[in-house]
Design a binder for these strands. Structure first.
Lengths: 234, 234
DNA sequence: CCAAAAGTGTTTCACGTACACCCATGC
DNA sequence: GCATGGGTGTACGTGAAACACTTTTGG
């Protein structure tokens, strides 16, 4: 089967940059990204962002979800469009334009498993990355920058942390992404004054120290506030 | 001549949303957008965003600049990527994925002239638009929304107004884009305190009224401040 | 009793906001 | 002299930032 056109056409792909925190071990504060090891050429054996070709009867967002699911097993991820990248020689085979998507997930909720044309799947710390296939290092940098911009006006911590978390964990997350220390009292006051956190039952977190109160994020309230023009700011 | 592939391929286009203020008549406060009237089918005779197919040997940004120049005569415009749109049935002919770009220009510096497959070119007030071809009304809404977001943290006024302008004009621009009235004294205080405006010689602007001081934007200073982590906020 | 992290208040300062009057100019 | 827009100062409230000690728990 083949398809013929009057003019040459670029191939169209999607790529997914999925970020996660290790929400099982909250002392591990590295931000991680999901990569696959390519099975076939080009860049066989090389690590790359999950992604692939867009089918004619699916939207771009659908293609991104599908490829992510097929290659890594991650399903029902809320992907957001990042940008389109169309440098002429970014793929050695032919002209390929890619639409990049990004997402934030809780690592513990995801069972990454290699499938499709991925030899392996793994989480990598964004500050300790291998050389990736194609221009994927560049795409990843763009996504990381977008994340840093986004953290200031969207409650991303609440997508990255476990369901229940301490204020200290939330503060560590913000310190990691914003890359500066925050005052404990000011941070607590500010985040609590938004009224988006709900206290849950206490749990001992570490040895040899006072137990901390756990909170969860009030999604419904956040949605209500958003509709009224509320903007989260950090 | 024809081109054959193993899998069917979407066509790839770019579309440009070019905004401008009428900087000759600053009492005309409407924000305008550049549209072309389509010559051929589909949507012949219908107004649409300038744009067209991406060639295989050019980047996406290049395609956007080229199509804009070919169809409207506008050249050397700094286009920024907005998003990729790939709904399955957005073009009645076949699957077409488009990359939307947007830009801000001074209307007086542009000589819009219909060419290529555009029957006519014209500026339309964004608040009084006709029904556009394809999903171009939707793309335009996205671009307008992006502009409103952007106005708050980038000095866009300085791209839209003439080289020298009064504080009143700048305020009118912000009121138009932010869609709310601003206090004159507070606006002047805030914008002047940033130190990005330079006084130039006075000129009488209107009849029957006191002459107003003109300012120009200090681009060099803005660039220096940006490097030091300054963020413009309105 | 010691180590380790949790939790808590106050002061200061900058900034946003609200608000009203006189001034210069052209007709 | 009047209509038109230009230009100016002050008071108040909110929110960011800086800062140090006591409490609880496990070992």
């Amino acid at each position: 089967m083949s398809f013929t056109y009057k003019h040459p056409r670029a191939a169209l792909t999607v790529d997914c940059v999925v970020f996660a925190l290790n929400d099982r071990d909250l002392n591990d504060r590295d931000l991680n990204v999901l990569l696959i090891q390519r099975n076939g050429p080009p860049f066989a054996g090389c690590w790359a962002l999950p992604g692939g070709f867009v089918e004619l009867d699916e939207t771009l967002a659908h293609a991104a979800s599908r490829e992510l699911r097929e290659e890594t097993g991650l399903d029902s991820i809320r992907l957001e469009q990042l940008c389109a990248i169309g440098d002429v020689d970014r793929d050695p085979r032919e002209r390929v334009v890619t639409i990049a998507y990004h997402a934030l997930v809780r690592m513990s909720e995801q069972q990454a498993q290699a499938a499709s044309d991925a030899r392996a799947v793994a989480w990598f710390a964004v500050n300790d990355l291998p050389n990736l296939a194609f221009d994927h290092n560049k795409i990843l940098s763009l996504a990381y920058q977008r994340l840093r911009d986004k953290v200031r006006y969207q409650p991303i911590g609440l997508e990255l942390l476990p369901e229940r978390f301490t204020l200290r964990h939330l503060q560590h997350l913000y310190e990691a992404v914003l890359d500066r220390p925050l005052d404990k009292r000011d941070f607590r006051r500010k985040i609590l004054s938004m009224g988006l956190l709900v206290e849950v039952d206490e749990i001992k977190t570490d040895v040899a120290c006072r137990e901390a109160r756990l909170y969860r994020f009030d999604k419904a309230k956040y949605a209500r506030l958003l509709k009224r023009g509320f903007t989260f700011e950090m």
